[in-house]
């Protein structure tokens, strides 16, 4: 009886610790119930071909980036959050001039896109025009969205929404030992 009484008194603390354990392990296991399941993570880059925004004769295919670490960024001039992440991409490009950053100008008019880049700078190695079909292949949910691919042509990281310093530091920089 005395033992039982002690146990009951300790119960709240035991429950608290137990709960803390469960929640910490859940939190650190890096799941996110809010994000839709990504069908592409650790999969190959989907097939695509695109035309350069500035020069219609230049083209880019899947095979061109398959063997290089590449950052793929979907953007548009009508997307305000894209404007927010733009300086970070420029920073990245300045720090790692060898990094290939492919921009897909998603469902945008050519004129607006060029104006957007003139105003905000151009961090991209290559800007392809995307009429919407490439975004569909990549499973883009909304703009902006960023993908990272490795040397084997696999998608190793995907970020929905504008990039921030922390995401770049924890998820992008580690892959950039160029």
């Amino acid at each position: 009886m005395a033992f039982l009484k002690k146990f009951v008194l300790f119960l709240p603390i035991i429950i608290t610790i137990f709960l803390f354990g469960i929640l910490v392990s859940y939190l650190l296991s890096d799941r996110d119930a809010n994000k839709p399941p990504s069908a592409l993570l650790n999969k190959n880059i989907p097939n695509f071909s695109t035309v350069n925004l500035f020069d219609e004769n230049k083209k880019l295919f899947k095979k061109d980036i398959e063997d290089k670490v590449t950052l793929i960024n979907f953007f548009a001039s009508w997307c305000i959050p894209c404007k927010q992440e733009h300086p970070l991409l420029e920073d990245l490009q300045k720090k790692f001039p060898n990094l290939i950053i492919v921009g897909f100008n998603h469902k945008d008019s050519k004129k607006d896109a060029i104006k957007f880049l003139e105003e905000n700078g151009n961090p991209y190695t290559f800007i392809g025009i995307d009429d919407g079909s490439i975004g569909l292949e990549f499973g883009v949910f909304g703009l902006p969205e960023t993908f990272m691919t490795d040397k084997n042509g696999k998608i190793i990281f995907k970020h929905i929404g504008p990039l921030d310093k922390k995401t770049i530091k924890t998820n992008i920089l580690p892959y950039l030992n160029l």
Binding site: L9, F10, P12, I13, T16, L23, V24, L27, L28, D30
Partner: peptide, 23 residues
């Protein structure tokens, strides 16, 4: 995640301390 972890730690510290004091 950081925000979550921070609040979780506040919860843990405050609750455990309070229940210990209660005990």
């Amino acid at each position: 995640t950081t925000r979550g972890l921070f609040i979780l730690i506040i919860f843990f510290v405050v609750t455990t301390f309070s229940f210990l004091l209660f005990l």
